[in-house]
Computed example of a mutant assay.
Amino acid sequence: MLLIDVYVPQGIFGEQERQALGRRLIDAVMVEDDSHAIEVLDAERRLVQVLVHEPAGWVLGQRPEADPADLPRYFVRVSVPAPWRKEVSTHLVHTLTVVLAQTEAAARRDPERLRREPHALVHIVGISEGSIGIYGRSVGAREVEEQVTRPYRDAVARGAVLQAPEGKLIDPVCGMTVGRGHAHAGAPGGRGRVLFRLLSPLLRG
């Protein structure tokens, strides 16, 4: 589960641009390729939301004073289950900054300034166990993981899962296709498997 709050200066984006930014952020985080079980991908996407905010006031501390809209500033806060935070932070900061840079390039502004100047601030926030509320109850990281992998596990139980390609293995929990002898992150526990689905570029190496 991920909640991504994006704060941008007022007047920079229209409604279509805000929607496009949100979609790009989701697509960047929810990596899809042929090695991923579609059941898990769809379950993950149901638990990801992006909120784009335009604060009424935005004051920069720099001298001389500057308008945050002149060279648009960004503040992004990503909320994840606390046990995931340390593992995903580096990847998320990089990935989200890349998306913001692409947004700047599309607007014909200098995307590299987001790497030269502190114009894109990203916070990765871990939500304490039992402090996430979905389905009308409090849940922890383990239950989120079980919800995400359940559709695939149900498909396995029905016998509705394809055989692994030659030289490959399919993880029976999350459906990830991996090479023989290359156990992926988190095995044998479930959290690494779910993180591999959510953030496979980070854990692929």
Rank of each mutant, 00 (worst) to 15 (best):
V144Q: 09
A106K: 09
S89T: 15
R142C: 06
H119P: 00
V99D: 04
S89I: 05
A43Q: 09
V50M: 01
E117Y: 14
D67I: 03
E117V: 07
I134N: 05
A69D: 02
R45K: 15
V76M: 03
E65V: 13
P83W: 13
S131A: 15
A82V: 06
R77M: 11
P118D: 04
P55I: 01
V78S: 02
L114Y: 08
L60W: 03
P72N: 02
V88F: 03
H91W: 12
R142I: 07
A82S: 14
E44W: 13
L121P: 00
K86F: 07
P83N: 13
T95W: 03
G140D: 11
R109D: 01
H119A: 12
F75I: 12
V80K: 05
V50A: 01
E65C: 05
P72L: 05
V52I: 15
Y135K: 15
A105C: 06
P81G: 06
D42H: 11
E87G: 04
L71G: 09
L121T: 11
P68Q: 09
A101V: 05
V50W: 03
R109I: 01
H91M: 11
A101H: 01
S79N: 10
S89W: 00
W58G: 07
V76P: 00
L96N: 08
V88P: 06
G133Q: 11
R113D: 00
S131T: 07
A120M: 07
S138Q: 12
E104G: 01
R85A: 15
R63P: 02
A69M: 08
R113V: 12
E54D: 08
E87K: 15
H53N: 10
V50R: 02
